[in-house]
Design a binder for these strands. Structure first.
Length: 552
RNA sequence: GCGCGUGUAGCUCAGCUGGAUAGAGCGUCGGCUUGCGGAGCCGAAGGUCGUAGGUUCGAAUCCUGCCACGCGUACCA
């Protein structure tokens, strides 16, 4: 790769001139300055007690004849800018599609999504699914074998509330044999909402719900068992329907009820060493490592979420013993919680804990419209999907790829934000198909495909010796692809891909406006660039698990 | 109170392992019809980067105080 050779050359020159051992960094400057830039002269200034300008001049003298370099110049306070020859740039651009596989041979577990049956799947879950899926896909691009996992609270008070609600609804015939899942989506949510409300307002109901809760654990009441079973199934069918709309799948679902035994066993085994007794409960003293103290087993001898999560870590470890990494993706409200849970795991099983990381995404807010329902601040995932779907259908009734456009719009609206902080989703904006959006990138891709389909010229033997300005800009942008993917993998920040693809598409569209391709005398060169561009765009979208249709 | 996080254009956000005139979309205003898909392109207006200090040749970026907001803070998940 061109940049590696340059870095080495700079290193050698710095050593030769100043006997300095440095790790030069190349950055991508503004296009007006060149293709690569380095600030080593500024860094060396202090150590050598010479002026940055002087050092830069000396370095330029050493480097100006490097292969593939057209010009080396000094600018500003002492930056050294490198401009590649057009043929070197072309070569770099045309191999940009071939990415290294730094994670080859690794098995990585990624847990995300995690909506609870009997409750509405809201836009926060949607965010988690989209992010988790994109990160999984990103790791696969880097060569890893990824297992997409999810974890669901199938027991507990929320289930009891929903079952109470179901029992008290007059008509629940469709629960048994629902032919259209979407018809039932509000059904369970309504049952949960009424149960939750009754739990708050009505003491009799509260007792009844608590009783249901123990029956759920005990499994002794046939009617409750049946409602529990059918309701869970209905919930998961509903989740699947949403995921199908987004073209997201998971490899394995873990249920909270499955984790209890393993978790409890693990905690009990480590009482005294890792856990201690306090006020009748079994706790982990997080304060000794600067965290909160949290309860793992309650004074009523019930396992908390913490214990179940420890149990889950054991189940995963048993199912995938070869995994080298385990990533758990949740909303950032759980960040502190995971620190404590992982600290406890570290005391129990340091090797497993070292492999496990928690990755947080922000809370999803909505900027326009009333988002709160009667049950609180939950905005159903399905509602957002429908809104976007309707907008796409209305605007492009003839299109054959409306489904792909719809989920591109939704996914991109989430993924373009940097992971970690809260986001405010503008529903209008996520519906919009213009500007910095998934559909814009898809459209730009379809344009390129259309050109390629029309041309009959064979470009495999074309050698590019020189570019015009517009071609050069496009080639330059294409050549950055491997660096962007590399950074995205290292940071696990998918938004870098979005930003890059958007800029790339903009560069292409600008090129497209100024440069005729078919019929022009430069057709072979331009066609070759369009081909490279189209592949990068398709591959980049694939990393985000967004389809790149050839026609729209 | 303590802990974690956030504060960049009217709105939504990039930029944050310090570097060159702080970028983009939306919105506003003004252009592009004979040429490969106008879901596009070109341009204009719009910023004391929350605030006050500090470190540095150089700070949106690092450090400290303050202000505002969000989340967490023992038997929920």
């Amino acid at each position: 790769m061109q940049s590696q050779e340059l870095i080495r050359a700079i290193q050698v020159a710095a050593h030769k001139l100043y006997n300095a051992k440095i790790e030069p960094e190349l950055s991508r400057p503004d296009e007006q300055f060149g293709d690569y830039a380095t600030n080593v002269a500024l860094q060396l200034a202090k150590a050598t007690a010479k002026s940055p300008q002087e050092i830069a001049r000396a370095l330029v003298n050493e480097l100006k004849d490097s292969p593939g370099i057209a010009t080396v110049s000094i600018a500003g306070p002492g930056f050294i800018n490198f401009k590649l020859t057009d043929s070197a740039l072309a070569k770099t651009a045309l191999v940009a599609i071939d990415l290294p596989k730094p994670l080859a041979g690794q098995e990585i577990l990624v847990e995300f999504g995690d909506p609870n049956p009997f409750k509405e799947m809201h836009i926060g879950h949607l965010y988690s699914y989209i992010v988790g899926d994109a990160i999984s896909s990103l790791l696969e691009t880097a060569g890893a074998q990824v297992r997409r996992l999810s974890y669901h609270g199938d027991v507990g008070l929320h289930v009891a509330k929903a079952i109470y609600g179901l029992q008290n609804m007059t008509d629940r015939t469709d629960l048994k044999d629902a032919s259209d899942v979407s018809d039932n989506e509000n059904y369970l949510a309504t049952a949960y909402a009424s149960g939750a409300k009754a739990y708050e307002d009505d003491e009799l109901a509260r007792n009844e719900i608590n009783s249901i809760n123990t029956h759920i654990y005990g499994g002794s009441d046939p009617e409750i068992n049946k409602l529990h079973k059918n309701g869970s199934q209905l919930s998961f069918e509903y989740f699947d329907k949403i995921l199908e709309l987004l073209s997201i799948s998971t490899d394995k679902r873990y249920l909270e009820s499955q984790t209890i035994e393993a978790g409890k066993k693990l905690v009990e085994k480590n009482v005294g060493q890792v856990f201690s007794q306090s006020q009748g409960a079994t706790v982990y003293d997080g304060e000794k490592v600067g965290l909160h103290t949290r309860v793992f087993i309650t004074s009523k001898n019930l396992p908390t979420y913490e214990t179940k999560d420890l149990g889950l870590s054991q189940l995963k470890n048993k199912d995938y013993p070869g995994a080298t990494r385990s990533i758990i993706i949740t909303a950032n409200e759980q960040t502190e919680y995971f620190k404590v849970m992982l600290a406890a795991l570290k005391d129990i099983d340091p090797i497993l804990a070292a492999k496990t990381t928690h990755l947080a995404h922000g809370f999803v807010n909505l900027s326009s419209g009333k988002m709160s329902s009667r049950t609180g601040n939950v905005y159903p995932a399905m509602k957002l999907l429908r809104l976007v779907k309707d907008a796409v259908h209305q605007q492009y009734p003839e299109s054959k790829v409306r489904k792909e456009v719809t989920f591109a719009a939704v996914k991109y609206a989430f993924l373009k934000h940097r992971l970690g902080s809260d986001i405010t989703l503008d529903v209008e904006e996520s519906i919009s198909l213009e500007g910095n959006s998934g559909p814009y990138i898809q459209y730009s891709h379809a344009r390129a495909c259309s050109i390629l389909a029309k041309s009959k010229i064979q470009t495999s033997n074309i050698e590019i010796k020189e570019f015009d300005d517009s071609e050069r800009s496009l080639a330059r942008k294409i050549s950055q692809y491997p660096e962007i993917v590399d950074k995205t993998v290292a940071e696990l920040m998918p938004h870098h891909i979005c930003t890059y693809l958007y800029e790339l598409a903009q560069t292409f569209n600008s090129f497209y406006e100024s440069s005729r391709i078919i019929g022009d005398e430069r057709q072979p060169i331009r066609l070759k660039l369009v081909g490279a561009y189209q592949q990068i765009l398709a591959n980049g979208l694939a990393i985000l698990n967004i389809k790149a249709p050839e026609r729209m």
